[in-house]
Amino acid sequence: MLKIVEIDHLTVQYPDLKALDDVSFSVKKGDFLGIIGPNGAGKSTLFAAMLGLNTKYQGTIKFFGKDIRKSKDYLKEIGYVPQKPMFEKNFPATVKDIVQMGLQHESYVDKIDKILQQLWIHELSKRRIGELSGGQQQRVFIAKALVNDPKLLILDEPVTGIDQQSIELFYSILRELNSKQKITIIWSSHDLDAVNQLANHVACLNRTLFFHGQSDEFFTNEKLVKQYSEASMQEHMHHH
């Protein structure tokens, strides 16, 4: 099977802490990888390195067999949905403007309509992005990520602050993209149950990678699940 992502001995050292310590794993074509870990586990650090936003790391990251330090071409093959995109509430851009941003030409019009329909945001295409609910905005950014026919979709904790109904819809969209359109997905999440239901692979991260494998393996291993739950509980209590 073709390896889409290969991460080899990745270490990210900040002045006062080691955010990632010798992390290695790979993602194959068609995988649906759920990355779980408590707050501050290094999920965002991992994504920043993978997306070329932070180049100060040790180790190697390869996409489609090529080292990302050598070429940024891989970015054209991936779609990224950020955690919570920051923008001005009255930013004068409609849903359609947002989806078209960055595209070179207009030849995508039919495809954009199709994607908007698939994501249930077609009727919103002329509304300003700031007028939409969190769940609707999120689907707009998925649409944006899909418009270039990505081979890989990377989603960073994408359900923070979104209502339950939108979350359900979002999960069914992800499932469809992976199973029907064969898009490889890397998705970081807090929601252990959802990862259990959707992902076929799990990576458990807390500065180091302490599990990576089939999700069945993870969820049938009570010790691992307990360990994870305790780690995130501690984190939770820490925050309150």
């Binding site: 997306l51 070329g52 936003l53 970015l75 990224y80 923008f87």
Partner: peptide, 9 residues
């Protein structure tokens, strides 16, 4: 609109 997202694209 969003520098980071644009960079990633």
């Amino acid at each position: 609109f969003n520098e980071e997202q644009a960079k990633v694209s």
